[in-house]
Nucleic acid binder design. Structure first.
Length: 504
RNA sequence: GGGCCGCUAGCUCAACUGGCAGAGCAGCUGACUCUUAAUCAGCAGGUUACAGGUUCGAUUCCUGUGCGGCUCACCA
């Protein structure tokens, strides 16, 4: 407790006290504004277009003081709200007494204030308000980051994201775009007759993907539950239920490593479309990403690192097998089991985990040799069935499935397949998968019998899709770390906090 | 979890080979009637992440810890 108050600048506390003593509430309940700063600036432009009309227009705006330039009898303040900013021109002869008092003694950069007065433009052309009344709406007790360089300490930017948003316009822009991207995706899918649904986050068994889940406990029923690692199995139940086109945009949780491309919780889009297959889904995805990019950025070409990436369809389509042959020099068809493939990889000098099954070995080849080269949007097609327990076999091929993964900027951004809807085949695949997990010493997941029961009622032929939204946002905003597109990325607890907790 | 790098005032950064810890912004006092990174004069602000060690002397060298970044491992 004491440490918290100690961190507040003494002078700011004095100002707070002085305001209270003068009968001014430093945290009043409300302030009625007439315009946002953006609207106010637009209004000035309008007045200028119609010089014949009324010239004196008064507005009430509110926001955070971002800079303060006192000049004798005059002072200039920059006021920012969520829409933009406007300059406040405070003249001793115009501003009322309370406002003058506040401006002179107790106003700090960072304070939230309300201001009212006449709109005008200064000699230098800056859109401004000649302030008559200036009131404190929320006293700021902590100094803002440096006005010119902003906040660059990455740790602080993540831990105190609000400061990042105040100080760095680029950060603000990323999250505005993130919001627009998600809105655009919803629009795209809604227009195509998809309905948005919500399925359980807490699940009795974490299915639909192969990843370590987070475990939690439900006291009321005395059972362990898992945070979902995918949306898949519940969405397919809805296809069984007769919703022919469904999607969910939701948070999923994977208890795995962190990296610039992985956060333990991240946002996934999954969609399922009855009477469609992976080819239909492929066309939909490339069109969706291109459309979203155009809608949000006004272009279908983005700069990512050193490269310009074009989302214009059609994206390149490459056989997964062929891509690994080209990049790694290995044809996995020649190695029908994990042991022989592992031996081949060891012979190449790769450090190979002896626990990995064939599917995971192939995935390792893919991510090490192929993925980094997939800068332009590319579909890799037809994965081995070993690594695709929920996908339908490719007709005429016992080993491959109708599946694609989409890559761009050297990252996997989507995964899709023609969904397996044969309940017997699905049960067989689950059992295989369980064996693999047991061999790798992972948390064993019960087979989702309820899902298999649903399939037994009959699921129509269906094309399913999963898109990593955070990675898509990375691509569209040119960010190379996933933490830069997640508002509050997961971080370790600061040792200072631990100390503080112990003292308290 | 491994490797490499970083941590100095509220913020952005300096400090040579180990020798008095410094600047800009923010803050405070004052000047200034159209500034916009306002300007000018002055003041204050530090457990150099933390704990040890070497040394006459450590921000600097060594060891450990914490946190972060990058990277490898892990990750359908």
């Amino acid at each position: 407790m004491a440490s918290r108050a100690d961190s507040i600048n003494k002078q700011r506390l004095e100002k707070l006290e002085r305001l209270r003593e003068a009968g001014c509430n430093p945290y009043p309940h409300r302030y009625q504004r007439s315009h946002t700063t953006e609207q106010a600036v637009a209004l000035i432009e309008e007045i200028e277009k119609n010089p014949a009309e009324e010239k004196v227009i008064e507005v009430r705006v509110a926001g955070r003081i971002m800079s303060h330039r006192p000049m004798g009898k005059v002072a200039f303040l920059d006021l920012r709200d969520g829409s933009g900013k406007i300059q406040l021109y405070c003249h001793r002869n115009v501003l009322n007494e309370d406002g003058l008092e506040l401006l002179k003694k107790d106003l700090d950069i960072g304070d939230i204030v309300g201001a009212s007065g006449r709109l005008f433009r200064t000699r230098t052309g800056e859109a401004s308000i000649e302030v008559k009344e200036l009131v404190m709406l929320a006293k700021s007790l902590q100094p803002l980051p440096e006005k010119w360089h902003g906040l660059s300490d990455i740790d602080t930017r993540y831990r105190q994201r609000y400061l990042d948003l105040i100080a760095n316009n680029e950060a603000r822009d990323i999250f505005l775009k993130r919001s627009l991207i998600i809105t655009a995706i919803r629009q795209f899918l809604n227009q195509r007759g998809f309905i948005e649904v919500e399925t359980p986050v807490l699940q009795p068994s974490a299915g639909g993907a192969l990843a370590q889940p987070f475990i939690t406990h439900q006291h009321a029923l005395g059972r362990d539950l898992y945070l979902r690692i995918a949306l898949e199995l519940y969405l397919k139940r809805l296809i069984v239920g007769g919703f022919d086109r469904v999607y969910e945009l939701g948070r999923i949780f994977r208890n795995e490593g962190l990296s610039t491309k992985h956060n333990p919780e991240f946002t996934m889009l999954e969609s399922y479309q009855a009477y469609a297959d992976y080819n239909d889904v492929m066309r939909m995805l490339e069109e969706m990403v291109c459309r979203v990019s155009q809608q949000v950025l006004g272009t279908d070409t983005v700069k990512f690192g050193e490269n310009d990436i074009s989302f214009k369809p059609p994206w390149q389509r490459v056989e997964l097998r062929q891509s690994i042959i080209e990049r790694a020099g290995i044809d996995f068809e020649e190695y029908p089991d994990a042991d022989s493939l592992r031996a081949r990889m060891l012979a190449m000098g790769m450090a190979v985990d002896p626990e990995k099954d064939r599917g995971r070995l192939i995935d390792e080849l893919l991510s090490n040799f192929v993925e980094p080269h997939l800068v332009q949007p590319t579909f890799l097609l037809h994965h081995p069935v070993d690594m695709s327990p929920l996908a339908k076999l490719k007709p005429g091929d016992e080993h491959l499935v109708e599946r694609f993964e989409a890559f761009a900027g050297g990252m996997e951004i989507a995964n899709a397949f023609t969904e397996l809807n044969d309940p017997f085949e699905q049960r067989k695949r689950f059992i295989e998968q369980q064996k693999g997990r047991r061999a790798e010493g992972e948390i064993e997941q019960a087979i989702d019998e309820d899902f298999l029961l649903a399939l037994e009622y009959g699921m129509p032929p269906t094309g399913g899709l999963g898109v990593g939204i955070d990675r898509l946002v990375m691509l569209l905003t040119g960010q190379t770390s996933i933490r830069q597109v997640i508002l509050f990325p997961q971080l370790k607890e600061k040792s200072i906090d631990k100390k503080g907790a112990q003292e308290a």
